[in-house]
C-alpha cells in the first residue's frame, strides 16, 4: 500500500521553498525566456501557458517523450496475451474441433489479438501519461501563488525548482528578471493557510 500511496505523492523538492515562479506577458516572451533558462543549464524547471505554444519543447530543450515506448510495450503485451491465451485454450487447455479447422486457427484469433493490442496501447498511453505527469496531484506548491491562477487563463509562467543544482534564490531570480519576467515570486513548499471561513480579513 505504501508503494501505491508513494506513487500518488508527487516528487517535490525538499526544503522550505519549492522554487521561483516568474510571470511573462506573452507567449513569445515565455518562449525566449525558456531558451535563456535552457542555455543557462537549468534542468528542473517547467513552463506553464493557457494553450500549447508551438516549439516550446525545443525552446525548453526537452527530450522526446518516452511515452510511445510505454504504449508500444503494452500494445505488444496485449497482442501477445490475446494470441497466447486463445492459442493456449484452443490447443492445450480445451481443444475443440470447430468447423473442421485446425486447433491453432490463428486467423480466427486475430480480431481479439488486435483489440487487446489496441486496448494495451491505449491504456499504456493514458496511464503512462498520468504516471509521467505525476497525476493525480491534488495539490501543488505552485498553487500557493495567487498569480498562478491565471496560468489557465491569460498568464504565462516559468517555474524553476529549488532542487535544481544551479538554483540560487537571488541569482536565479536575477536571471529571470533579465529574461523579461514581469514578476518573480518565491514559492513556499508548505500549503498556504486556508482563510478562515467568515472571519474578518484584517
Amino acid at each position: 500500500m505504501s508503494f501505491l500511496t508513494g506513487l500518488l505523492r508527487p516528487s517535490l523538492p525538499p526544503g522550505e521553498h519549492f522554487g521561483l515562479l516568474a510571470e511573462f506577458t506573452s507567449p513569445a516572451e515565455l518562449y525566449h525566456a525558456c531558451e535563456g533558462v535552457r542555455d543557462a543549464g537549468y534542468t528542473r524547471w517547467d513552463a506553464h501557458a493557457p494553450f500549447p505554444v508551438h516549439g516550446l519543447e525545443r525552446a525548453m530543450g526537452l527530450r522526446a517523450s518516452r511515452l510511445p515506448w510505454v504504449s508500444l510495450l503494452l500494445a505488444l503485451g496485449g497482442g501477445i496475451t490475446g494470441m497466447g491465451l486463445q492459442g493456449w485454450v484452443s490447443t492445450l487447455a480445451y481443444p475443440l474441433v470447430i468447423s473442421g479447422k485446425p486447433f491453432f486457427s490463428w486467423p480466427a484469433f486475430v480480431p481479439v489479438t488486435f483489440e487487446l493490442a489496441v486496448l494495451g496501447g491505449a491504456l499504456g498511453a493514458v496511464f503512462g501519461m498520468f504516471a509521467m505527469n505525476q497525476l493525480p496531484t491534488l495539490h501543488h506548491p505552485l498553487f500557493n501563488s495567487q498569480a498562478f491562477e491565471r496560468a489557465s487563463d491569460d498568464g504565462f509562467f516559468l517555474s524553476i525548482e529549488s532542487w535544481d543544482p544551479q538554483f540560487n534564490p537571488d541569482r536565479t531570480a536575477d536571471l529571470l528578471r533579465r529574461l523579461g519576467a514581469k514578476e518573480v515570486e518565491l514559492i513556499a513548499s508548505a500549503p498556504r493557510q486556508a482563510p478562515a471561513l467568515g472571519g474578518a480579513t484584517e
Binding site: 507567449p27 513569445a28 518562449y31 494553450f51 505554444v53 516549439g55 516550446l56
Partner: peptide
Amino acid sequence: SAPHHSGGTGPR
C-alpha cells in the same frame, strides 16, 4: 481552436 503560432516562435 488554439492559437496556431505565437509571434515568431519557430525557426521559420
